[in-house]
Design a protein around this nucleic acid. Sequence first.
DNA 1: AACTCGATTCTAGCACCGCTAGACATTCGA
DNA 2: TCGAATGTCTAGCGGTGCTAGAATCGAGTT
Lengths: 195, 195
Amino acid sequence: MSVQERKQRERADRERLIVATARELAERQGWDAVTTRRLAERIEYSQPVLYSHFRGKREIIGAVALEGAAELAAALRAATAAADGPRARVAALAHAYLDFAERHPAVYDAIFQLDGGLPYARDDTPEPLKDAFAALLETLGDVAGPGVEPGLFTEVFWSSLHGLATLTRAGRLPPEFTETRVAVLTDRLAVLGPA
Amino acid sequence: MSVQERKQRERADRERLIVATARELAERQGWDAVTTRRLAERIEYSQPVLYSHFRGKREIIGAVALEGAAELAAALRAATAAADGPRARVAALAHAYLDFAERHPAVYDAIFQLDGGLPYARDDTPEPLKDAFAALLETLGDVAGPGVEPGLFTEVFWSSLHGLATLTRAGRLPPEFTETRVAVLTDRLAVLGPA
DNA sequence: AACTCGATTCTAGCACCGCTAGACATTCGA
DNA sequence: TCGAATGTCTAGCGGTGCTAGAATCGAGTT
């Protein structure tokens, strides 16, 4: 039994190594640089070993996406927990979200742009993805305002942040006035005060 | 002289054929299917001919993006011209934008997501791109509201639409409630009435 | 009308991609 | 100690974007 357990553990370790290496490569040089050959070389195994863990490159991207989604959720919760009042919480959320997108563009893409073979917005959506949306909902649900369902409001606010993040990174928006743009979003979209 | 002119004309024709063929291929089967080999075969020339017109696949994407941007601008103007009042105009704009993104995903990607080697948000940005933004500004600039610069407001509203379009197409958002989401954007973000 | 020579186009090939069949090595249970 | 099962590797498939150099074409000149 113990031998099998050791093997399972080693296999799990190697799988984590693959995901971590893929992520590091993607963050450093972009997803185009994450080739099965390079990845295999980095983990010091041959290419087919990758395929004994994942069905293909797509699934490796998916694994990085799940890891990243968990981190994003944690970052959002940490940021909002440290803020007082609805406005500050929404602002902190927006800031943390865009910060994550800017600091981890490759991971962000794995979560929200690339095809990682993951089911989204469904019952069988993996927990980390559901939880990342839940983290958004926790803060944004409180400022949906009258007549707007919290989940739908969260989707809208999230989409706006996503649009800002992607257009800015793709060079379509000048990065200078991000702060002001976020302020417009926060002040107009969210229904903040009781007053 | 006339011989040279004919050659120039034929060359320009062939260039248009390349762009049109690339676009058609992309719209039918996605950009991954637009390979230099397939493209060359379709226009009945060899691969190197493509490179006598464009520096590479990237520039071909850029050419499709410019063509698409002009069409998007026209579609936005047509939609807003047929609408009465600020609210109807903004709603028509949003609808036309998302409609374009849904009907021409490959072209939309060429304009807003892919690397076509084009300079965006700069002085030397190609005219069609500037004009597409101008088309947005014409309608959205009127509903920026007090204290918000029209250009910046346009960027924010545009980003929100872009986020909705891309997240929905990538399967991250369920497509069912798009209409409601747009209504939230329109009602909350835009400052509509004089009242 | 034949020829020359520059412009044009093609063939063939580079290094790389994701992925996999089948050979080889290693480890385990009897 | 041997046979089988498991694990890993080598080698290769068909594809990618791109390009050097050969071959062809055709316009202007004799």
